[in-house]
Design a protein around this nucleic acid. Sequence first.
RNA 1: CGGGGCGUGGCUCAGCCUGGUAGAGCGUUCGGUUCGGGACCGAAAGGUCGGCGGUCCAAAUCCGCCCGCCCCGACCA
Length: 571
Amino acid sequence: MKFSETFIPTLKEAPKDAEIVSHKLLFRAGLIRKLSSGIYSYLPLGLRSIRKITDIIRQGMSTWGAQEVLLPLVVQKELWEESGRWQVYGKELLRFQDRHEKWFTIGPTHEEVMVDLVRNEVQSYKQLPVNLYQIGPKFRDEIRPRFGLMRGREFIMKDGYSFDMDEEHANISYQRMFDAYNWIFRQCGLNFRAVEADTGTIGGNFSHEFMVLANSGEEAIVSCSACGYGANVEKAEIGYPQPAAEAATTSRIQKVPTPGTCAVEEVSAFLKVPPAGIIKTMIVKTGHEFVAALVRGDRELNLLKLKNAVNAASIELAKDGDCPGLTGAHVGSIGPVGLKLKIIADTEVRYMRDAVVGANDDNFHYTGVNIDIDFTPALFADIRNAVSGDACPRCSSPMGITRGIEVGHIFKLGTKYSAKLHAEFLDEHGVSKPFIMGTYGIGVSRTLAAAIEQGNDRDGIIFPPSIAPYEIELVAINMKDRDIADTAHGLYTKMLEKGLDVIYDDRDISPGMKLKDADLIGFPLRVVVGSRLKKEGLLEIKVRKTGEVIMATQPQLYEKLHALRTSLMPQ
RNA sequence: CGGGGCGUGGCUCAGCCUGGUAGAGCGUUCGGUUCGGGACCGAAAGGUCGGCGGUCCAAAUCCGCCCGCCCCGACCA
């Protein structure tokens, strides 16, 4: 493709509503334009990248046994009422009426439609498994769309659903998709991690999120470089090596005034005790019961872990107003000593000695407090958020925390939808059973944004070749110079003949602009026809990612391009 | 939905407080000079100042309502 014949409106400055780097660069490089809040148009370069991503997805899906379909975007209310989600889904579900005043939605996800399709067509276990997916636009009326393609209202998604006869087969389907997703994101040239994710209300431990590692990621993930364990920070378990010996207690409990202190840091500063020497006590409402949760002063309580530890149906922090009645003090002076509530302590608290705790008396704390002497927790459990350096639950190596962007999510659904929608088949004994389902999503447009969050520098985007709009840009430095222009034209023709994925910047503008545009858009390889051609007959190849410059004669060019491309592609 | 901010040419923004002529840079068009990091000279086009209403001799500027967009919190690929 010739640059002059393509619609690539690049910009020197980003519009002010672009907040994060991928949004700015997507916009400046002319890949997208905004139509409305959270709604974007894909321009030719943006679409090319999207296509490359979806081509990789299609290849992965078909290799691992899923087939593509295309489901309707517009879905009638009745189907969503069957699953109960018409009521449950809330305002993210865009609802509207047709001319007969019949209600519809633009699907934000397609479990209902897919289940409806399969329940009407699949009656026998002999027809299973079925694994279908589609790629297309979705609409979620996000309360707050932001970050360009990262969190749009309309976005492109691949959503897939598997139907199996039993758990065992469902696990196989799940594993296949897990493998497919790993392959897909590797092919996209992304640095990512599959992490164990929270399964929420559905239960089971069959859910993985695929996170692209980037500092700007919205989610914190914990990972172990030694054994590959990775988990969402909400879910990450913490391994505890056995302490060599339990430390001795050295002091006795003593009540001290701590006027005006509330937060751990304030108590820490006032008493000149490090936060790690303080036990933080929080009152939590689990179902209808209040319990006290204890973590080290420098740690954060993880409500989800606590909820699982006590098997609660719901969980929330108690309101400050509830605390005096339960403990005798306001938040800030609450402690476990003499407390009438059930106490759940983080595992780490067991080994703390001579600790500082709230005295259940406003503006007072106890020092020199010890477990079993001054108070006894009902339960020790892992109830805090993991931090960098915590031991891996699998191999005990120190884990690191990185930030990630969720680009894929696979989930074993069980019978949640098949049961509600009465999607059943007859097994080999003639018994009617609901399908065991799995659901598998990839945020396609978000993947593009994530790739840019991961690959960029001050000059612009650094695309992995497999998803770059074009792999190679050919630049003629000066179109008025006949030698240069003719050589460039010749090379362009030859490159097309050889099937290279090339765009030729043939615009009659200053060299500075062309080079700036090339860096901005981030084509992985750039071939420049310029002064070195005239002087020495040499072409320049520049690698966007490394800045490496390689000179080549015309006959050498293709071999060198091929070698460079290979070196940049995922193995 | 709650809290904060913004809306002036295609883009970035000044002007508003203290009412009276709508401005700059970038981009665009034309002519010329340039040609390896968003070049230079000259000329030009382009604006219902988000909308409606009000105050006033006079409103981009003051007041009210509405709309849109962005940022901070709960949802999610």
